[in-house]
Each structure stands twice: as C-alpha cells, then as structure tokens.
C-alpha cells in the first residue's frame, strides 16, 4: 500500500509542474504585465519603464522568468495585484478563508443529506420513500447548480427574506465577537445548502446502489442465516462495507466544489476565491488571475490525490494498478 501512495505522489509532482507551466504560459499570452498599470502615468517615460522592466527581469527569456516565478510562489510570493494595489498573497488570504468556510459548510451539509438518504433509499429500496429519494437524485442530477442557487436565493433570500442575500458577514460587526461568528454562519447557510443539495445526489445514488448491491452478497445472506438481527446485519456488515467508499468521495467533492464556488459565490455575492477569480478576469488583473487558477488547480490535484489515497486505504483491490 505504501508503494501505491508513493507512486501516486510521484505522479502528482509532474502534474503540478505541468499545471504551473501551463498557467505561467497562459499568463504570458495575457496582455500587460506588472507595470502595465503605470503606463500612461505622465511622470514615467517609456525609457524609464523599459529600465524598470529590465530591472524586474521582465525581459528575460520565459524559462528564467518561470524559474523566478516558481521560486516566488514556493516562498509564498504571488506578486503584486496592480488593480487592487496590494500583494496577491494578501488579497487571496482574505478570500481563501471565506471560501474555506463555505466549502466546509457545504461538505458538512452534503454528508448530512447524503448518508441518511442513501441508507434509507438503499435499505428500503423500491418503497415509496426510495422512489421519492431516487426521484430527487434524478432531478438533482439534471439541475444546473447555478439555476438552483438562483432560485433558492430568490425564494428564501428575497421572497421570504429568511436569509441574507449577499456578503459573508453583516457590516459593522467587530471580528472575533460571538455576533460576528454567528452572522458569518448565517451567511453561509443558504449558499452551502444550495450547493450541497446538488452536489450530494452523486453520493446518495452511489450509497444506494452500494447498499443494494451489498445486501444481496453471500456474506450478508450468511449473516442473516446465522440469525443475526436485521439491525446488526445493517450496522455491522452492510454499512461498514458501503460507507467506507463514500469516504473516498471526499477528495472528489473538493474538486467538484471548485466549479461550484464560481457560480455560487457570484450569485450570493460572497467574497471568496470564485468571485475573486471572476473579478480578476473581468478587471484583467492577471497576476491575481494566474495565482487563483494555480491555487484551484493545486486544490483539484490535491483532491484527486486525497481520494486515491483514501480509496487505497479503504479498498485493497484498487492498489493493484
């Protein structure tokens, strides 16, 4: 098993390198550089600009600049945002915390919904309850997240007014107070639930079919034949076999969240990474954009890695590959 994990880590490394090269090259094609913001400033002549460019190493060949950039990134220096006029690291720092909490809340909701629904629907399959749960997953599968989130915001945010409609916290509260934390949580609920209700359908379906599948296995029939009570059969045998693979979905959920946050954060005007991404695209703030894409990419690679590792721990069959 260690072999598998080590091999998997070794695959991850070139992935990161390729991702960073691609992101970097994309950045090269984008118009403008760190000094574009200074163009048009009457106090700086074109010559001076050229000198500063030279001094900053912007005229070096691309691989030298790539090297500089990578060593900067590794040290946590993502450059300067010329739109927001602050270091990108700082800019991202604020947003990433918000996105982190949104993801945590979404994941919690995802599992809170998925586990009971999956188990109920698998255990009592073909009952009315199962049919309604399957119906939900079927419809949820076909619903685009952004439409669902939009409708949720419209109904619960605007029509009923139960939840805040934008931002990550009530303005005017002091960070650190109990009210502040509460307000943060309050802002997280609607976007979190919206995302979770769509993201969870995969897990529900998987859990359901896994349980139905396990139910008919010989070792379960043996357990029943030995006279084990139904609750014991479920808790000891079926659930253990079916829930473990769900754990492996964790990494994929994280990867899936990335696309989701872009939509949900836009709809709920939630100041997180997804919104920052769109802002930096719209404002053509390329140093920020490049860093955000890189971070999302690293998260995706990390998510896949995590899933594979969990899977290899849980399911011995996967290790042979």
């Amino acid at each position: 098993m260690w072999k598998f994990i080590v091999r998997r880590l070794i695959i991850t490394f070139p992935q990161l390198v390729v991702l960073s090269v691609l992101v970097f090259l994309a950045a090269q094609f984008m118009p403008g550089d760190a000094l574009t913001g200074s163009i048009g400033n009457p106090n700086i002549t074109a010559e001076q600009l050229e000198q500063r460019r030279e001094a900053l190493g912007l005229n070096d060949p691309w691989y030298v600049r790539y090297g500089d950039w990578v060593s900067g990134v590794v040290q946590g220096d993502l450059g300067e945002s010329y739109r927001f006029k602050m270091p990108v690291t700082e800019l991202i720092g604020q947003r990433i915390v918000n996105s982190f909490w949104l993801s945590v809340v979404t994941l919690i909701f995802t599992y809170i919904i998925a586990v009971p629904l999956g188990i109920l629907s698998g255990r009592y399959n073909d009952s009315l309850l199962d049919q309604s749960i399957t119906g939900y997953t079927y419809v949820g599968f076909a619903t685009p997240l952004f439409i669902f989130a939009l409708v949720m915001l419209w109904i619960f945010g605007y029509q009923f007014g139960w939840f805040p409609t934008n931002g990550s916290v009530e303005p005017g509260l002091t960070p650190g107070t109990f009210d502040y934390v509460l307000s943060k949580l309050y802002h997280l609920i609607l976007p979190g639930i919206s995302m979770a209700l769509i993201a969870t359908v995969n897990t529900v379906q998987y859990l359901r079919s896994e349980i139905i599948d396990t139910k008919q296995r010989d070792f379960i029939i043996t357990a029943r034949a030995k006279g084990a009570p139904e609750s014991r059969v479920y808790n000891r045998h079926i659930l253990r076999n079916s829930l473990l693979p769900i754990a492996a979905f964790f990494g994929f959920e994280i990867t899936g969240l990335i696309g989701g946050t872009i939509f949900v954060e836009t709809i709920f005007s939630y100041p997180g990474m997804g919104q920052l991404f769109l802002e930096s695209v719209t404002l053509r703030d390329f140093s920020t954009l490049v860093s955000v894409v890189l971070l999302f990419g690293v998260t995706a690679i990390g998510g896949a890695l995590l899933s594979d590792i969990i899977l290899s721990l849980v399911d011995p069959r996967i290790r042979i590959k």
Binding site: A26, M30, G259, V293, F296
Partner: peptide, 18 residues
C-alpha cells in the same frame, strides 16, 4: 491526463477572455 488537471470552467473562462 494533462487536460484533466486543468480546472475546466476556469480554463474555458480564461481562454474566452484571451
């Protein structure tokens, strides 16, 4: 595999702007 590493929606958006 290399294509799969790229976060798809973001990549499309970036290309659209480029």
């Amino acid at each position: 595999d290399f294509f799969l590493i790229l976060p798809m929606i973001m990549t499309v958006i970036v290309f659209v702007t480029l």
